[in-house]
Computed example of a mutant assay.
Amino acid sequence: MVGGQRGAVRTMAGVTAAAGSAVLAYGALYERTAYTLRRVAVPGLPAGARPLRLLHLSDLHVTVRQRGKLAWLADLARVVPDLVTLTGDILCADDARGPLLTALEPLASFPGVFVPGNNDYSAPTLRSPHRYLRAHVRADPRGEPLDWPGLAKELTAGLGWTELTNTRGVIAAGGLRIDLRGVDDAHLGRDRAELVAGPPQAGTDLAIGLSHTPEPRVLDAFAADGVGLVLSGHTHGGQIRLPGIGALVGNCGLERSRLRGLSRHETASGSCWLHVSPGLGTSPFAPVRLGCRPEATLLTLLPAGP
């Protein structure tokens, strides 16, 4: 009887291991490249304004061999956005800059704004998988330095987009005047919200803030200043999400329930909409997504209800 029980345990262990391997294979070989365009409606425009179509891209983590991702990016111009926003972690290596810019070229027909993420300053490195399960891991700068100033210059000069690293300005898009402000990466502690503080500029229809990492201190500052919508990435939506549990970790101070998609950020001083993009990529050293497909998002901003 004991021998039979041991055999049953070994069989169950084998079945469990096989099931786990199958799930990881699905996440690494299929879901990681199942690029998806999600469409989300957001209230907040003045009464009578026409809808504004905003394409939110984040966490591309492009490498030179990712032809499928680059082709999918190039095809996004078909959605004809009024404004493109890119919230950091764009490249994994400098040699991918040329292919990336070629893929983004069709979107150069539309106004665009961008901020950097932590991986735009240094390439990702091999880490212990146990680090992933820690709730809030500080960025490790030991990776190979990346030429963020060079990439930012090419996004500006080549595509005509505007960098919003600890700065603000006004852009006309979709028939509206938009107050836009952004901060450098909060995960690295480079954010300087005080440099972009203040109420929306007079005569603008909407204020939008960009921060690669959705740290609550940045969201609080934007909400207190009257920013209506904040766009972030960094979390990969958790990257691995389990049924009934959701994201395991997000590597920032935001609640796990808000690591992906649209939510309301409420403070004593004000409130705003927050959209956290799950992003389109992963680190080359953690090439798996589970229950969290890579996404770009087309946000349609609508006049607020009565």
Rank of each mutant, 00 (worst) to 15 (best):
T213P: 03
L299R: 01
L126R: 09
L37V: 14
D59I: 04
A96V: 07
S257G: 09
T165C: 08
A103Q: 02
A96L: 07
V23N: 01
A221R: 15
G143E: 00
I171N: 02
V249L: 04
A135T: 12
L107K: 04
A152K: 12
G14F: 01
S257P: 01
P99G: 09
G4P: 01
R190Q: 08
G44P: 08
L176W: 07
L29P: 02
G174H: 10
T102K: 05
L210I: 06
N119G: 02
L274W: 01
F110V: 03
S122W: 02
T282C: 11
R50T: 13
S277V: 11
A93N: 08
G226V: 10
R260N: 10
A157P: 01
L86Q: 05
L219T: 11
P129A: 13
H212L: 12
V64L: 09
R127Y: 11
S283H: 05
V40M: 08
V183P: 02
Q5E: 03
R78S: 14
A25R: 13
L101K: 02
A139P: 04
H265L: 05
R177D: 10
G237I: 12
I245M: 06
L54D: 00
R289S: 05
A71G: 08
D82R: 01
V113F: 11
L29W: 15
L302R: 15
E295N: 03
Q239K: 11
V276E: 07
A207W: 06
T165F: 08
L70C: 02
L73G: 00
S269N: 13
D185T: 10
L188Y: 00
G3Y: 14
G203C: 08
L101G: 04
F114M: 03
P287C: 10
A173H: 08
V80K: 09
A223D: 06
S58M: 04
V227D: 05
V23S: 03
A108W: 10
G244Y: 09
D95V: 05
D75W: 02
D89V: 07
R10P: 01
E154R: 14
P306R: 15
G20A: 14
R258Y: 08
I245Y: 04
